[in-house]
């Protein structure tokens, strides 16, 4: 990563413009040009520095729902169960953590009613009970780490 890559990761965390030529507009504020910015974003995506470039939607604000779930799975079963969980399109993020509850994933569904049904399908498919930990209150969300 060079200076421009860092400027892209830090400077385009949000605020990407909604206009006819947004890359050209964003490039100007980063001191580069449209073609270079597009090529750099492509490279950052291919290299895995960025996981996505675009809008971050809020499932709940769109009329859907999300929740945090955990599974306690024996070590020898982790790969198999993780693959089953990842196969559900409702699973938006999934992390392995060092704990008895070792698989942690976020479900995002298009309707509120779909959460319990999705959890039931995951329990049936994996054979493990899901710990369902929906958000009751949100105190702060702003994940911005400098590159």
């Amino acid at each position: 990563m060079d200076e421009l890559d860092r400027a892209i990761v830090n400077g385009l965390h949000g605020g990407f413009p909604v206009c006819e030529r947004p890359f050209a507009e964003a490039a100007a504020s980063l001191g580069t040009d449209e073609a270079t910015l597009i090529e750099r974003i492509n490279r950052l995506l291919e290299g895995g520095v960025l996981t996505r470039f675009g809008p971050l939607f809020d499932a709940e604000a769109l009329g859907g729902a999300f929740t945090l779930c955990a599974l306690a799975v024996p070590g020898a079963e982790v790969e198999r169960v993780a693959a089953i969980v990842n196969g559900f399109p409702e699973v938006a993020h999934h992390y392995e953590r060092a704990h008895r509850y070792n698989l942690w994933f976020v479900l995002a569904t298009e309707t509120r009613g779909a959460i319990p049904a999705t959890i039931a399908r995951i329990e049936a498919a994996t054979g493990y009970p899901v710990l369902d930990l929906p958000r009751l209150d949100e105190y702060f969300v702003e994940l911005k780490l400098p590159a």
Binding site: V49, P55, L56, A147
Partner: peptide, 19 residues
Amino acid sequence: MLADGRIRRIGAVPNHYAL
């Protein structure tokens, strides 16, 4: 959707491990 929060932001979503 940006104005009313259905879109939280538009931009780069980094992989924190890679950073």
